[in-house]
Design a protein around this nucleic acid. Sequence first.
DNA 1: GGCGGACTTGAACCTCGCTCGAGGTCCGGG
DNA 2: CCCGGACCTCGAGCGAGGTTCAAGTCCGCC
Lengths: 144, 144
Amino acid sequence: MRGLTIGEVAERSGVSTSALRFYEGRGLITAERTAGNQRRYAPAVLRRIAFVRAAQRVGLTLEEVAEALDSLPAGRTPTKADWARLSAAWRTRLDEQLARIERLRDHLDDCIGCGCLSLRTCALRNPGDEVADRGPGAVFLEPS
Amino acid sequence: MRGLTIGEVAERSGVSTSALRFYEGRGLITAERTAGNQRRYAPAVLRRIAFVRAAQRVGLTLEEVAEALDSLPAGRTPTKADWARLSAAWRTRLDEQLARIERLRDHLDDCIGCGCLSLRTCALRNPGDEVADRGPGAVFLEPS
DNA sequence: GGCGGACTTGAACCTCGCTCGAGGTCCGGG
DNA sequence: CCCGGACCTCGAGCGAGGTTCAAGTCCGCC
């Protein structure tokens, strides 16, 4: 009963063993067990993990990733058509994010120099656009 | 000793009273107290709160917002020059976010239909670009 | 002076995506 | 057979940005 150990999968995928166990708990990946209860992974799990990480970079929550994975036909290897369907949906999502940020930037341009946070009409003060980037991004106010 | 009550500030700013107390704990806003220990806010707090919310929409953490507020000269009302300086920094930040998402989208375009998550060279699999939008965004996989 | 709604505090809880630690087991080489 | 490193489970903790609760106090109007 060969298969990849969790450590091997972690190394090859760049995802920590704790994250792999966490993903398993969320139903994102699965593993066989040895007689001694250790996980053994099929090589295909690496592609699945790559899918999860790619989806996360696009901004999906793990729950959404799980839905997307569930939408793939069980049993067979995903085809190019499956991938095209999902990646088109991702693209839409990215386009929406771009549009949102662009709107925000344009409002900001309108506002520069006008001190308009004091005006009730300022678009920046009013809702609809969210960014909330929690990733490793640029630091605000240059570290001088 | 007049001044706005916390409820009035909440109503006018659209920020909940619990959030206002939370902001005070983070040093983002301040308030006087009545003899009976209730908060009373100066009207200028509304502009300050608007600033906080705008900065959050641009993606700053509350800690970064606090730094930005600290960078404003104490005591006097912020000038247009102050605002221009900060909003220019925000614009840079938004531009970086846009660039990041565009790169990701372009990778995705390169990948559509090629099933390239199976290739070790796929740019989508490899790091550097993060999105992680936690805001109210579009739902993935249209609700059909 | 009495009523009720607005206010006070602190602590506990929430989501998300993990990480870490404790305490214990398994596996492979020498 | 023994050792050490990799593995196991379970539960707690983090950090961001709050919300919710409990128990008690204040404010202002009639």
